[in-house]
Design a protein around this nucleic acid. Structure first.
Lengths: 340, 340
DNA sequence: AAACCTACCTAAAAGGTTTTCGGAAACGTA
DNA sequence: TACGTTTCCGAAAACCTTTTAGGTAGGTTT
C-alpha cells in the first residue's frame, strides 16, 4: 500500500470546503438549476480538489437503480462466450452501466449461488450466456428483474433469447459454393447431439435442395469438433466421392483438418475442392493454406444486441421469443481461386 | 417481463411478518447472540417465506466494504487476459467476492473512465490485466485502494505485479532438449520489441551456455508471432543448419508452423528435429502432428494468485515488487519419440 | 410601509441495513 | 420488599446521497 489516501471524500467534505450545504453541492454537481453560477463554480473547484466521486452505493440506495447488470456465463473457457461478453460490455461501457461477471462453470448449484448474490446486489438486469446453442433451463421464473439469454436460448419461449441463425448461416455457405460453380458438395460436421450440428446440417440440406443438388457422399459426415476428425473425414469423403468439388464444414477446426489432409493427398484447394468453415476463428482460419472462407456468427454483435435489448427490457419494453441473428460469409482463399 | 415480483422484500417486511423489530431480524439473520432461539427460528421462517436478500448497497454503505473487486483489462480479445481473468474470478467466486469487469480496449482514456466509475462504486480492490508482459504505466499512484497487476507488470516497482517467469520457462525448454540428447538447438521467436521474446531468448541462451552448447543457426530467429513465420523460419533454419536436431519456439503458433513445414520437407518430428512450443494453447498444440511439447505459463494459476494476493492487500498485507510465477513443461509427441 | 415576488440556499427526510445502548422482563438473592 | 443479574428485545444513530419543502434576503409594487 504505497500511497493510500485515508478515505474517499464525501459530499460533506466538499460542502465544508465550498462553504455551502450538501444539498447545494448535490445540485451544483448534478446540473440542477437553483444555484448561482458563481456558487456552482466554487463547488466544482472544491469537488475537483478533493477528487470527489459520489458514492454509487448511496446513490443506488435512493434511486433503486444500481446501473449494474449481471453477466452469468456457463462457458468461461470457451471461445463462444467471450465475444458475447465483450459485445455486451461494449454496449454497456458506452453508457454508465457496469458489468458484474459470474462464471458458473456449467454447475447449476454455482449458478444458483451467483444468482442470489446478484439479486442481493440489486442488479438492474441479467444476461445469461450459454456454452452451446442448445436450449438451457430458464432462470427467469419469478425473478424480479429482466433477463436476456445469449447464444444458448432459454427453454421457456416467454423469455428473451438471442442466438445465431445457424440454419441460414449454413445455407449461405452452400449458396456461395453454388455461386462459384460447385455441384458435388459434402458436409462434414460435429456430433449430432449438438443443436448447432443439426441446424447447420439442416441448412446445408435445404439449400442443396433449393439448388436442385444432392448431398455428396450420400450422407452428412458427423464426428468431433476437431481438426483430427477433419483429416479423417477428408480421407473418407475423397475416397467415397472422387468427383467431390466442395465441402461445407461445421467448424473451422474441421475445415482446417480437411484442408491439410486434402493438400497432402494432392488435391488443390480451392481449384479441385473448395472449402468453407464455420466460426471465423481467426487464428485458425487465417493460418491455414489457403486461408479459410468461413461463416462468422457475429457473436460480438449478438452480445451487443442482447445488451441493448436488456436496456429496453429494463425500461419495460421486452420482446419475448428466440431472436435469430444473421451470420455473415467471410470469403478467403479456400473458395476464391484468385489467391488469398 | 413475464412474472416480475413487485419489489424485493426488505428487512422491515421480515420484521413485520415475524412480529419483531428490524434490529432483531438483523441479529437473528447474522447469527448474533442476544436473540432467543425460538425468535430466531420465527425470523428465519419469515425471511425464507419472503425470499429476503439483504440489500448489498445498504450493507456496503455501513460497512464501507463492497465485497467487490474491479478487473481492468486491456486485452479483451487476447488469449492471455482471459485465463488470468478466469483464475481471478475463480478465486473470488469461492468466497463472497464479486468481480466488476471493465475492458479498456487498450485505450488510456477509457481506462481512466473505467477507473473513475470503479472508484465511485467503492470497489475493495483492483486487478489490472495486461495484454503482453511488457511493463505498463502504474495507475496505483494516489489511489485509495489496493491494486495488483497481472501478466503485464507495473512500471513502478512499489506496485505488486505477477508475471510468468519467461526466462526460466525458456531455460526449462532447453534443458528438456538437452536431456533427450539434442545438441544443435535453434530458437525461433517473435518480434524483439516484445519483452516476452527478449526474456525467452535470454533464457534459451543462458541454458545453452550452462550446457556448454552454442545456439544453432548462429542467431535467434525473430519474426512475427504467427504460423506463417514458423514455416518461413523452418526453411531458413533447416537450410542454415542441416544438422539441426532441436528447435525451441517462442510460441505454439510458431512451433505449429515449423512442424508443418519440417514435415513437408521430409524431416521427421521428433526423430530428426525435436520441437518445443510456448503457451500451451491447447487447440493448437494438441492438433499438430505430432502434438506439441510446450511451456505452459499457468495463467489461471497466476490469476488466482493475483486475486489471493489482492485479498491480502485488502487486509493490509502487501508484498511489493514483481513476482515471477513458474511455468511448467508439457511433454507431448514433438519431443517424445515414443509418443502419439 | 406593507405586501409580494424572485433567486438562492438549507434543513430534513428517505433509502435499507448494522450496531450500540438502553430498557424491560424475569429471576434469584438479601 | 428492595435490589442486583441475566436475558432478550427495540429505539435510534450511522453510512452517503438526492429531493422536497421551506426559509431568507433583496428588490419591486401598491
Amino acid at each position: 500500500m504505497s500511497s493510500q489516501q485515508s478515505r474517499a471524500a464525501t459530499i460533506t467534505d466538499v460542502a465544508a470546503l465550498a462553504g455551502v450545504s450538501i444539498a447545494t453541492v448535490s445540485k451544483a454537481l448534478n446540473g440542477r438549476a437553483q444555484v448561482r453560477e458563481e456558487t456552482r463554480q466554487r463547488v466544482l473547484r472544491a469537488a475537483e480538489k478533493l477528487a470527489f466521486q459520489p458514492n454509487a452505493l448511496a446513490r443506488g440506495l435512493i434511486s433503486g437503480q444500481t446501473r449494474t447488470v449481471g453477466l452469468l456465463t456457463s462457458d468461461s473457457v470457451g471461445r463462444f462466450g467471450i465475444p458475447v461478453l465483450l459485445g455486451a460490455e461494449d454496449a454497456f461501457g458506452a453508457g454508465e452501466m457496469s458489468v458484474l461477471l459470474c462464471d458458473a462453470r456449467g454447475d447449476a448449484i454455482r449458478e444458483q449461488h451467483h444468482l442470489r448474490t446478484l439479486l442481493a446486489r440489486r442488479v438492474d438486469g441479467l444476461i445469461v450466456v450459454g456454452q452451446s446453442t442448445d436450449p438451457r433451463p430458464s432462470i427467469s421464473r419469478d425473478l424480479p428483474l429482466p433477463v436476456v439469454y445469449a447464444y444458448a436460448p432459454s427453454e421457456d419461449p416467454q423469455d428473451v433469447s438471442f442466438v445465431p441463425d445457424d440454419v441460414e448461416g449454413a445455407r449461405t455457405a452452400v449458396r456461395h459454393m453454388v455461386t462459384i460453380g460447385r455441384r458435388r458438395i459434402a458436409h462434414i460436421t460435429g456430433p449430432t447431439h449438438y443443436q448447432a450440428a443439426r441446424d447447420r446440417a439442416e441448412g446445408v440440406l435445404s439449400a442443396l435442395e433449393e439448388a436442385g443438388l444432392s448431398l455428396a457422399c450420400g450422407q452428412v459426415l458427423s464426428g468431433e469438433w476437431s481438426q483430427r476428425w477433419g483429416r479423417q473425414a477428408a480421407e473418407i469423403a475423397l475416397r467415397a466421392d472422387p468427383e467431390l468439388d466442395a465441402v461445407v464444414c461445421g467448424s473451422d477446426q474441421i475445415a482446417a483438418g480437411f484442408v491439410e489432409a486434402a493438400r497432402e493427398r494432392g488435391r488443390r484447394v480451392p481449384d479441385d475442392v473448395a472449402v468453407v468453415g464455420y466460426d471465423n476463428w481467426e487464428v485458425l482460419a487465417t493460418e491455414t493454406r489457403p486461408p479459410l472462407t468461413t461463416i462468422d456468427m457475429n457473436l460480438e454483435s449478438l452480445g451487443r444486441t442482447a445488451a441493448q435489448h436488456l436496456f429496453a427490457a429494463i425500461d419495460g419494453r421486452a420482446t419475448p421469443g428466440v431472436h435469430r441473428m444473421p451470420c455473415r460469409l467471410i470469403i478467403r482463399g479456400s473458395t476464391a481461386s484468385s489467391g488469398d
